[in-house]
Simulated scan of single mutants.
Amino acid sequence: MSRENGVRWDPAQYGVFGGARARPFAELVARLGDAAPARVADLGCGTGELTATLAARWPGARIDALDSSPDMIREARRHEIPGRLSFRVADVTTWKPDAPVDLIVSNAVLHWVPEHPDLLPRWIDALAPGGRLAFQVPGNFDAPSHVLLRELGRSDRWRAKLGHLQLDAPVLDPAGYLDLLARHGCAVDAWETTYAQVLHGEDPVLEWVKGTALRPVLMALDPDEAGEFLAAYRERLRQAYPAAPYGTVFPFRRIFVIATRNTT
């Protein structure tokens, strides 16, 4: 999980709902079918657990995994396999391989890169003929969790410190990505899935967002301000996502794309 906005990320907090966060990655990779890539790049690898599944799936592949967060890479290096799977700190926006790759995977990264529609054609150009780019991004920016966060961040109380952090729509829809990449000569499979997730624990939606969208907000505030902001946001989330006897339902839309470079 690459973070290209200078935010410090907490691997432990991100991993609180690790199973739910891993499912879209597994479903994206499953859609690749019987692919057998020799050179793979995982751009925004996070703590490496999911990258390690690629090494297990393709034991003959050499995998270069990178993330801009030193904390994430420190955790990821526990999964290194000499000569097969390596992790390093690097910026996905400036990444360029030393030779064409067969597969680029990017999981829940591109919504942190505002300029990524311009970046994606460069990634396609880094593929070998017939190579594939596979990525997924959250598509839930119209969900209450994010609408409430934007509204609070843009309120009179917080606008000066947080208003610039509140982006309305940092990703395209499936048709938008299809059009972008098809115009660049790719065959494109693009789709979306909404997961009706059931979360458990006290204020689980807040705990989920603490691992992602809230990170830049909390970094911009001092501890007292952060406590004030979280208290206000918590109350709004409790109303938007009421707890049920079986847990708290947190619907989550995700957008998936697999683009195959032409062979000529």
Rank of each mutant, 00 (worst) to 15 (best):
A55R: 13
A55W: 04
L127W: 05
P144F: 02
L230F: 06
R3T: 02
F256P: 01
V7K: 00
A108E: 03
F229E: 05
A259L: 05
T53I: 08
A232Q: 15
E75P: 06
G227Q: 05
H164A: 15
V113N: 04
K96F: 08
V101M: 08
D10F: 02
E151R: 15
Y177G: 08
A99T: 13
P114R: 02
R77N: 11
A134S: 08
F229S: 03
D156Y: 01
W112F: 13
F135N: 11
D64E: 13
P245N: 10
L172N: 04
G176V: 01
P82F: 05
H146D: 11
V171H: 06
Q239C: 09
E202M: 09
Y195I: 07
D42V: 11
L54R: 12
R39D: 15
R238F: 03
R77K: 11
S145I: 07
S155Y: 11
E202D: 14
R8K: 12
I258W: 00
R261M: 03
Y195T: 13
F17A: 10
A226T: 09
L180T: 09
D10M: 07
L43M: 13
L230V: 14
G33K: 13
D42W: 05
R132F: 00
I258D: 03
G247W: 04
V89N: 01
A56W: 03
D42R: 02
R234H: 10
I258S: 04
H111R: 13
A190D: 01
V105S: 07
T53Y: 07
D156H: 09
H184P: 02
R77P: 00
A244R: 14
A187G: 02
P242F: 10
R238G: 10
G83I: 13
M1S: 12
P121E: 06
A36V: 05
V101R: 11
G15N: 10
D142T: 14
L133N: 03
Y246W: 06
F25I: 07
T51E: 06
P251F: 05
R21V: 02
I104D: 00
H79C: 10
P129G: 12
L127I: 10
G48T: 04
L214K: 03
D168P: 00
D168T: 07
D10Y: 01
E49A: 15
P251I: 03
A259G: 05
F141P: 08
P204A: 12
R8G: 09
R183H: 13
W158R: 11
P121I: 05
D224E: 14
R150A: 12
D173C: 09
L54T: 07
H164T: 12
G201S: 12
L103E: 02
T53R: 15
R157I: 00
L43A: 11
R154S: 06
P174I: 06
P114S: 04
W58M: 02
A61W: 04
P245Q: 01
R253T: 11
L28C: 07
T93Y: 04
A52K: 02
F17L: 12
A36K: 14
Y241E: 08
F250Y: 14
V209F: 10
G48V: 00
T212G: 14
A12G: 08
A240W: 01
I258R: 09
R3E: 04
V205L: 07
V147L: 13
G227C: 12
R183A: 15
L199C: 10
S69R: 01
A175K: 09
D125R: 15
H116I: 11
Y233H: 14
G176R: 04
N262E: 01
A232F: 00
T53D: 12
L218Q: 07
